[in-house]
Amino acid sequence: MHVRISMERPEESAAIKSLYQWLAKDPDVARTAELSLTTQAPEPGSMGWDMDTINVVLSNSLAGLNAVLAAVTVWRQNRPTGSGGVRVDTVEDPPNPAGDSGGDDRDRG
């Protein structure tokens, strides 16, 4: 399972970097998730600016998601009131091409 974490207000890039560091130091998150910090450009033709996001790949979907959500909750509780909210979205894994089992494609006949 993939999860994307962003701030509700894109101008809060310092906050998303702080959250990334918090998640990277959490032992439960480290055990069940792989993190990366990326910058998303706005959709072509739309008004907006680049937005930093945390991409999370979970090795154990339920336990990993619980660990990430718990860590985000504790991080939010330690932030000043009035700071922007955190958005956590699940992202569907891309499907395998039809017939691709991930094995060797050579003819075994």
Rank of each mutant, 00 (worst) to 15 (best):
M1C: 10
H2D: 10
H2I: 12
V3S: 01
R4K: 02
R4V: 13
R4Q: 12
I5E: 08
I5Y: 11
I5T: 07
R9W: 15
E12R: 09
E12K: 04
S13M: 12
S13P: 01
A14L: 07
A14F: 08
A14H: 09
A14K: 06
A15N: 11
I16R: 00
K17P: 04
K17S: 11
L19K: 00
L19Q: 07
L19N: 04
Y20G: 06
Y20K: 05
Q21F: 05
Q21G: 04
L23K: 06
L23S: 05
A24V: 03
D26T: 09
D28S: 03
D28Y: 11
D28Q: 10
A30F: 03
R31F: 06
R31T: 06
T32M: 06
E34Y: 08
L35N: 07
L35S: 02
L37G: 12
L37V: 03
L37I: 07
T39H: 02
T39Y: 03
Q40M: 14
P42Q: 08
P42G: 13
P44R: 13
G45H: 10
G45R: 08
M47R: 11
M47Y: 11
G48Y: 14
W49V: 15
W49A: 15
D50R: 14
D50L: 15
D50Q: 13
M51I: 11
M51N: 05
M51K: 08
M51T: 12
D52I: 09
T53D: 01
T53W: 07
I54A: 06
I54K: 03
I54C: 02
I54M: 13
N55H: 13
N55C: 11
N55A: 14
N55L: 14
V56I: 14
L58Q: 00
L58M: 11
S59K: 13
S59Y: 04
S59A: 02
S59T: 00
N60P: 01
N60M: 13
S61I: 02
L62E: 12
L62P: 04
A63H: 05
L65W: 03
N66W: 06
V68Q: 10
L69C: 06
A71P: 03
V72K: 04
V72G: 05
T73A: 00
Q77L: 15
N78H: 04
R79T: 07
P80H: 13
G82P: 02
S83V: 05
S83F: 09
G84D: 07
G85P: 01
R87V: 12
V88F: 14
D89F: 02
V91N: 03
E92R: 12
P94A: 12
P95E: 04
S101A: 15
S101F: 12
G102P: 10
G102D: 03
G102S: 01
G103P: 00
D104H: 04
D104N: 09
D105H: 09
R106L: 14
R108T: 06
G109M: 13
G109A: 09
G109I: 10
